[in-house]
């Protein structure tokens, strides 16, 4: 991924990006405000912000999300948006709240958000890539591969049944 500042884009391209991001996020059920900012975030290209209510939640997509989307060796824009929508599900979905029954660590939330994203996306490649990210993050949390795969499998089957 480039470390440089983003190249300038015309206003029409800015609007096009915001429209595209909004269409994807709404399709995945995101409720709240959506913004596109043509700056480097150093956050991977997308961020979810928990608001005072679901209507005040915020999804921000940054310039590098489009750089990543154009790279065949990186996550698609759909996968990036789905992961952030997964964060909203973790915080806002009543069924999930009943299952989680309390605060979770940020590392565990990242695993959950990727698993949730894998339930939201339509393309098989995006589903697989988000599952791999979830297993990878679970391994980084200290689980061995076997336990990480088991955790992601159990979470995903649970989430599928909640849909």
């Amino acid at each position: 991924m480039t470390k440089q500042h983003p190249e300038p884009i015309p206003a029409t391209e800015h609007r096009h990006r915001l429209r595209r991001v909004t269409e994807i996020a709404r399709r995945f059920g995101f409720a709240g405000r959506i913004d596109y900012r043509h700056v480097r975030s150093n956050a991977g290209g997308a961020q979810y912000g928990l608001g005072s209510s679901v209507a005040h939640d915020l999804l921000v997509i940054y310039a590098e999300a489009f750089v990543r989307d154009a790279d065949p060796e990186d996550f698609s824009l759909e996968a990036l948006v789905a992961h952030e929508c997964g964060h909203q599900l973790v915080h806002r979905n009543a069924d999930w709240q009943r299952v989680l029954t309390g605060p979770i660590t940020s590392a565990a939330e990242e695993v959950l958000a990727s698993v949730a994203g894998s339930v939201l996306v339509e393309r098989p490649a995006d589903r697989e890539n988000l599952v791999l990210k979830a297993i990878h993050d679970a391994v980084r949390c200290g689980l061995d591969f076997d336990a990480a795969s088991q955790l992601v499998f159990e979470l995903r089957r649970l989430l599928e049944k909640m849909r």
Partner: peptide, 8 residues
């Protein structure tokens, strides 16, 4: 947050 790590 997705993080900066590439899929590859």
């Amino acid at each position: 947050m997705m993080g900066n790590k590439k899929l590859a």
